[in-house]
Design a binder for these strands. Structure first.
Lengths: 184, 184
DNA sequence: GTCTATAAAATGATAGAC
DNA sequence: GTCTATCATTTTATAGAC
């Protein structure tokens, strides 16, 4: 019956619950129940809830960029790709019910933990580099230099995702896309 | 000895703890201990933890705009005032140790609650209107129309505050200010 | 209004059998 | 590696005296 291994099922269930209802509002008991595994199996694979959190962040990071690559693969042209980043985020908002960025959410609900910071920053750093690489390939209007344009697009997206979570709406990312279009 | 009333002391203590260590990571017991009041006094003034949360949001909203007015009062000129919004946020980041926006944090760590949404949205709506009023008074470069410029400044700020919380740094708000300056 | 004592449930984590 | 049973705390909230 079990298509997936126990460890994967634990991590998948925990990931879903951590995002949907929050890390602190998700108890070990609920993970055990919904993953349909034994209590000790969880603690065998993940010695503490913090270990599960770190695994969640790593898994989310991998999936995130995997989905990005898949989404971007058929899109040609650096300018089109930059604008497609906004479409990618809108698509994710819809799928994830506008609950915002996984990484921002975790930062907001956990206290200072260096291992958490390392992971969320690595995620955002990589996304900023992704934008920067595309910006350098475009022949944009030069209203802003490459670095400033990169930061502008990045901050517009981050702000729009945060407001999307607050208003449960794709409007802000769509507005951000139009603003971005005027600089490109 | 008691300079402030019991109800105020409860709300002040809860507010500090909700922001510093998170709403879900703050227990009623800790609030009682640190406010140095009796258990039943808390439940007399705030029938549930959710009532305390709503009072926290209302209080934070009032204080936020009160501090904004005080900060902006001596600053002359709409363009200077728009740029001063970024300085105001940097000043707050420093004071609050870069933990980000109170309202975004609460959205990130509580499940859908209409009363919470109403308050956080009212806060952001009011801030957007504040920006819009200033934008209309400026004689800006017209690279963007008033509505788009308003939304750009707003999203840049929101993104920068979110990244400030992630990187525990004022760099993003300062970068956002420079970007804003190039549109004004 | 404020107090102490306590309830009822949920929390993260461990022990020891198989 | 997986299981069940259980532990010690902590959680939000209530009861009843003063």
């Amino acid at each position: 019956m079990r298509e997936t291994g126990v460890k994967d099922r634990i991590l998948e269930t925990a990931s879903r619950l951590f995002y949907d209802q929050g890390y602190n509002q998700t108890g070990i008991n609920q993970i055990i129940d919904e993953a349909d595994i034994a209590r000790a199996s969880l603690y065998h694979h993940f010695p503490s809830k913090t270990d599960l959190l770190l695994a969640y962040l790593d898994r989310t990071h991998e999936l995130w960029f995997g989905e990005l690559e898949t989404y971007m693969q058929p899109i040609a042209g650096a300018r089109e790709r930059l604008l497609a980043l906004f479409d990618f985020r809108v698509r994710r908002q819809l799928k994830l019910k506008y609950k915002g960025c996984h990484f921002n959410k975790i930062v907001a609900e956990t206290c200072e933990d260096q291992q958490v910071f390392d992971r969320v920053r690595a995620h955002k750093d990589r996304f900023r580099r992704y934008i920067h690489d595309l910006v350098r390939q475009t022949d944009h209007r030069k209203l802003l230099d490459d670095e400033t344009l990169t930061e502008t697009l990045f901050l517009l997206l981050e702000g729009a995702i945060a407001m999307g979570a607050m208003y449960r709406s794709p409007d802000y990312v769509e507005k951000a896309k139009r603003i971005a279009g005027s600089f490109l």
